[in-house]
Structures are given as structure tokens and as C-alpha cells.
Design a protein around this nucleic acid. Structure first.
Lengths: 115, 115
DNA sequence: CCCCTAGTCAACACATTGGTTGAACAAGGA
DNA sequence: TCCTTGTTCAACCAATGTGTTGACTAGGGG
């Protein structure tokens, strides 16, 4: 996946309101008005947040008469998980290898350690 | 985990340079100078990026004489994965349930469908 | 047709971010 | 002790992000 999408997606999730919107959308599609209702914030502000999520590829919008139902796309979420998990595993496996080496050093007798 | 740490961590990873630093650090600890070398950017700028990663809890810094070796902490990476994965799974399972319902509607005979 | 609802667009204010440079500091080496 | 190395601190700048309000557009429903 390209760098830009990754950056946009992480940036999108860096905002608590937007993470909240994502949480809400896991329950199903919703209109802008429905999504905005719980917040002490103008509908325009929420609309902007949705635009950010959309440009990150995290949501898409249909048209239904005047309404614009918002839909959560899980694909990008998967790509984020993969990026993080790859790095998480990389450091974990390196550490466990290091652990193995240390354990080996401890368990072998001193003669072997300084050849 | 608290909202703030989550926000900081996502924001930290929203920058390509910082993601690059994280990648580099999966290979092992490194000093600020070593980390800065590959970039066409002042050492101070890289130092700032590291400060951002540190305040997000993604890295820690030791002191070794004048050097400040940077160490990648995998814990927060794990928390990020968990947040995303939870939502990813939430939407996936909802969709598969919906799929199940649709499949059921298709496979049962028309009388059952409109009781 | 007029109006009500749902939402976007535009312009603005303000804070934060990501970079710069120059100075300061911390600690070993000659 | 002074010099060099490695790093941070401080001030500044341009660009971006998050919110506001007011005006506009789209599409039913009386």
C-alpha cells in the first residue's frame, strides 16, 4: 500500500471524534445527521471529519435522496493492522532471538563462552 | 488504554519519516545521529520526530555518555493493533451475519419469507 | 410552487505541526 | 583544561488541522 494512504489513515484515526465515528459505524451505516447528533459540535464539523475519513479510504458515502449514508470500509483497517503487526512481530522475534542467545550463553559452560 | 495515548500514537505514525524511524528501530537500538544520517533533514528535525515518538510511548531513550540511544517499545504497537483489529472484526462479523441472513432468505421457500 | 430537511461550500480564527537556524549543554579525549 | 562530538533547547516560519458561522444546493412533501 502506498505511503500516502497509510499516512492519511493513521492521521484520520489520530482524532478521538473520528475514532468514535468509526466505532459507531461498525454497528451499521448512518447518515451525517445521525452521526452528528451525539456531539456538542456543529454538523459541519462532523461532515468535515467524515470527509477526512473518506479521503483516507476508511468510509464511503452513498446518496439516498437528500441523505448521504456513510459506510465503513474495513479494507484499510486491515492494511493498518498489517503494517503495525509486521513491525510489532519484527521487534518481538528479534528480542526472542536475543533472549535465546542470552539463555545459550548462560547455560553453556564458561570455557565455551570465551574461546 | 486512554484516549490520549491512542491519539498520540496514531498521530505519531501518521508521518512517513516517523514510520521509517520505527522500521529502522525494529532492527535494534540506534543513536539520534545514526537515525538522522539517511535523511535530507537537520538532525534537530529528527530529534523532534523522536520526541514525538517518545511522547506517544513508542520509543524510550537511554543515556550512554553523550549519546542517547533510542529503543523501540512494542507495547503501544500492540495496543494499536488491538484497537484496529477489534473494529475490523466488529464490522466483518456483522457483515457475515448479514450474509447469513441473506443466504437464509434465498434458500428458504417464498412462503416462509412473508409470514 | 413554496418550504422544510439534509448536507455541502466558503471564509474565517486559532492551535498545532514540521521544518529551519543558532546557541547551549553534557561528557569523553588530547 | 580546552576541544570535539552528540544532542537538546529556543525562536521563528509556512503549512495544515479543527472548529466556527453564514450562505448555498439537492430533493422530497404540503
Amino acid at each position: 500500500m502506498d505511503d500516502d494512504t497509510l499516512s492519511r489513515a493513521f492521521a484520520a484515526l489520530a482524532d478521538p471524534t473520528r475514532r468514535d465515528l468509526v466505532s459507531r459505524l461498525t454497528l451499521g451505516d448512518a447518515t451525517v445527521g445521525e452521526l452528528a447528533a451525539p456531539y456538542d459540535m456543529s454538523l459541519q464539523a462532523v461532515s468535515k471529519h467524515l470527509a477526512v475519513l473518506e479521503s483516507a479510504g476508511l468510509v464511503t458515502r452513498r446518496r439516498d435522496a437528500q441523505r448521504r449514508p456513510v459506510h465503513l470500509e474495513s479494507e484499510v483497517l486491515g492494511e493498518l493492522t498489517r503494517w503495525i503487526d509486521r513491525h510489532h512481530r519484527a521487534v518481538e522475534t528479534r528480542l526472542s532471538r536475543l533472549d535465546g542467545v542470552l539463555h545459550h550463553l548462560r547455560s553453556t559452560d564458561p570455557e565455551e563462552r570465551t574461546p
